[in-house]
Structure formats: structure tokens, C-alpha cells
Write a protein that binds this DNA or RNA. Structure first.
Lengths: 229, 229
DNA sequence: TTGCCTTGGTGTAATCTGTACACTATATTA
DNA sequence: TAATATAGTGTACAGATTACACCAAGGCAA
């Protein structure tokens, strides 16, 4: 590849903005870099794309290698190509964003990562390279997309209460929603399956559990339905 | 750059999906390739990113070089990284989409392009590489975005009639709109400036001309307004 | 010059959707 | 059994969306 017709070769990296939701707020998963440059600095999980893998494959692989996360919602976000964004030379980064149900996944530091940790999206450390910029873009995308596509469910366990779902939107959209109106609207969509189960181990009346039904959703979309919170 | 720490070098290209609108339908600007591979085949304008330019700069430059278009709306679309998408080797393409007021811009074939022509989006020739896939994505993005952001104006001359604007949405969204409701809604937004001019050289009653006012729009957005057709 | 053709431009009533708002029910814990 | 914490429910009003039909103006051809 060093002597293709163009000889305009560059390195291509992928970086992942991984979102998680805990009871309180929106979190982002960061790794502490173990290698130079910027060893010890917090950064988005990511790395170089290998010659025989697609961009999506590279993003999944890096996420698994550096954080242990597999089988999560992962979608391309934007590509970053500032000339001097990486001190090692010309590196274009294709950024992805991932949504993870925090409680269902344990993360662990591995390849190239000294440590892995969840940080509140509103209170982040200084990040390596242009990763703050990438993260901003991820946040913007999440806020924009969560209202029009049923991706929020990816941040919850598969069985969840309506209050959890409502809190999810309140946290991401940064505004409060009316309980009765929210429940009315969400249930009227007909994309949730009402389970014969309630949450366990809570110090108050237990709430009913629901599950998102992707098939019902797909059928409704087919018929012209469009999701909107 | 051949011996950076990673040695995972690839070529990076940009490709542009250029949309234009004529009285009848939505058009896409294609070039007929002059160089191998795929000489003589129609393709999206584009080319390799140079070492000292950003992705946005590369997209503008290629568009200008191959089609003569400058100063048009140009926004990143998606990056394509299938391993075998280009026979020359590993090439990742960062795709852009552009919106052009067809009448205001003359296009001309130049560097690397044997010919340049507008094709109806609904009736395209076979395209080089994975450009049909890229074009599909561009169409999807345009349809999705035109409803929620005032980018449609980029496809019209700076002074336009409400009927032209309505036809624009009808063509892109592929459904008809009610004339009275459309005008009521658009005018109620308060983002158009009503001019003291009417269109010229028409064989019927001349329609009043309007202009999109980006400042008014920016002020409204500031105040919480959100555009929607 | 008259009439025809084409597109421009306008209002209202009915329906649907979104919003505001407060109390009772149920489980746990002290 | 009382206190507390969250679950769960309905209605009235306002605003937005939809459906719908006719007159106006200018060019053109007979």
C-alpha cells in the first residue's frame, strides 16, 4: 500500500463515545491511555483500523479490546480530519457512539488501557487529542436522535419501568416531563410489551415492568408510524 | 508517513453527492470518470484527501476541480470503509452532500472528468465503486434533514416564490402538500422576508418573491423555535 | 377586446394533539 | 400501625393540524 497510484496515505482510526445511564445521570466510558503519546491521559476508547476490517468492525473490536464491551448498540457518528489532530502524523478518526445498559455490562481495562471508568457526562476530565470535540458531537447526536428513534431503550435493562424510561429522557433532554402525559404518550405508541412482573427489592410500591418490542415497532413503522418523544 | 508507529496506512478519499432541483424533479450531479479504474463510468465527484488539508477542504476542492462548483452548502454525510470498495486497494471514503441552486450555477467538466451532467435522482445510470450506496445514503439524509432544518432554501435561488418552495418539499418528501396550509405554516414561522418584487416572464399571474432570512431564523432558534415542515 | 387558460392568493370549521394539573393506591420500614 | 416513598390514574382547555373551494390577475390566442 505504500505505492498506490496516489501515495496519499494516512492512518485511519476509530474512536467510540460510549454512553451509559445510571440512576442519576448520563455517563461516558473513558479509558486511561497506557501508551505514548498521551500515556496516562483519559481518552475515548479506540485505535487504528486494520487493513482487512471494515470501519464498523474496527470500532467493535477496539471497544471489546479496551473495555470488554461486546454486543452493544454501535453507530457511526462523524469523521474528524483536522490536519494536526494527532501528534503522530496525519490520522483521520471515524467516530462511533455506543449505547450500553450500565447494569448489564461490567467493563474492565485491557489492551492499551491502564484503567477504564464511567464519568458523568457533565463532569469530565481533560481528554486526549480532539476527544472533547468528538464527545460533544456524540452528546449532540444522542440528544437529537433519542427523540425521534427508539434508541433510548439501549440504555436500559431489557425489562424496565416507565419511571426509568421517563428519567432517561429527562436526563438526556435536560428537561422534566409530566408523568401522566409521558405514560399516556409512550403507551399509546403500542411499542411496549407490558409484563406480568414488577421490579424487585425497592422500598416502596413496586412498579410494573415493560419491555420494548422491536417487532411491533418495525410493523408500525411499515405502516407509517413515527416515534417521537 | 510510510513508517509511523502503526503502519496501518490507507488512502482517504472524499466523495460528494450534489443535489439540485429543477422545475420537475430532484437532480444529482455526476461526473464521467476520465481516469482508470472505471474510466468512462459515471461516478460521484470526489478524490483523495491531500496530506495538508482537512476533510472539508478536500471535499470543497474536489468539487471545484471536477465540476466548477464553489461556495455551495456542503456537509459531511457518512464514511464508507468496506474492505474491497475500491479495486486500487484500501480506500476509505468520507462522503459529503451538497445542495445547489441549479439555475445559479453552471457546471463544467474539468480535472479527471470527461463530462459532468445532472441526472434525475429517480433515474440514474450505473455508478462506479459503491457510489450507488453512498447516493442512497445522501438521499435518505436529505429527506430526513429537510423537514427539520431550513436547508431546503439552498436548493432555490435566493429569491423564490412560495409555490417553488412548496414544490421543493413535495419533490423531496414525495408527497403533496395543501397549498393554504403550507403557506400559512411557512409564513407563520417568520423566517421569510416578503419582497416588493414578483417573478418575471411567466405566462400567468406573477407570484410574489420571498427571501430566507438567516438572521431572523438564528434569533428564533435562540428563543427556542424549531423549524419543521 | 374578449374570453380562456394558468397559476396566485386567501379563510373557516372540525378534529386531533399537547398540556396543565392533584389525588388515591400499594409496598416497605420504623 | 403510622410514616414515607413511589406507582398509577383522568379531565378540561388551548393550540395545532387538517380538509376544503373560490376569486384574482396576467398572458395569450381567437
Amino acid at each position: 500500500m505504500c505505492h498506490s497510484p496516489t501515495d496519499q496515505h494516512m492512518a485511519i482510526a476509530v474512536d467510540c463515545v460510549v454512553f451509559g445511564l445510571d440512576d442519576e445521570d448520563l455517563k461516558v466510558l473513558l479509558i486511561q491511555r497506557d501508551a505514548e503519546p498521551m500515556a496516562g491521559v483519559w481518552a475515548l476508547p479506540g485505535g487504528f483500523v486494520l487493513p482487512d476490517e471494515t470501519l464498523d468492525e474496527a470500532a467493535s473490536r477496539e471497544l471489546a479490546e479496551e473495555t470488554g464491551l461486546t454486543r452493544v448498540f454501535l453507530e457511526q457518528l462523524y469523521s474528524f480530519g483536522a490536519v494536526d489532530r494527532d501528534p503522530r502524523g496525519r490520522v483521520v478518526s471515524v467516530a462511533y457512539y455506543a449505547l450500553v445498559a450500565l447494569r448489564d455490562h461490567r467493563v474492565r481495562a485491557a489492551t492499551d488501557a491502564r484503567d477504564v471508568a464511567w464519568f458523568a457526562a457533565a463532569d469530565l476530565p481533560t481528554l486526549a487529542f480532539d476527544h472533547e470535540h468528538i464527545l460533544d458531537m456524540g452528546l449532540q447526536r444522542l440528544k437529537g436522535k433519542v427523540r425521534y428513534q427508539p434508541i433510548g431503550f439501549e440504555l436500559l435493562p431489557s425489562k424496565f419501568t416507565l419511571s426509568q424510561l421517563q428519567r432517561l429522557y429527562e436526563v438526556i433532554l435536560e428537561r422534566s416531563l409530566d408523568k401522566r402525559n409521558f405514560r399516556k404518550k409512550i403507551l399509546a405508541m403500542g411499542i411496549l410489551e407490558e409484563l406480568d412482573e414488577v421490579e424487585q427489592d425497592v422500598a416502596h410500591r413496586a412498579a410494573r415492568l415493560y419491555r420494548f418490542d422491536p417487532d411491533k415497532y418495525a410493523r408500525l413503522v411499515e405502516a407509517g408510524f413515527s416515534f417521537e418523544v
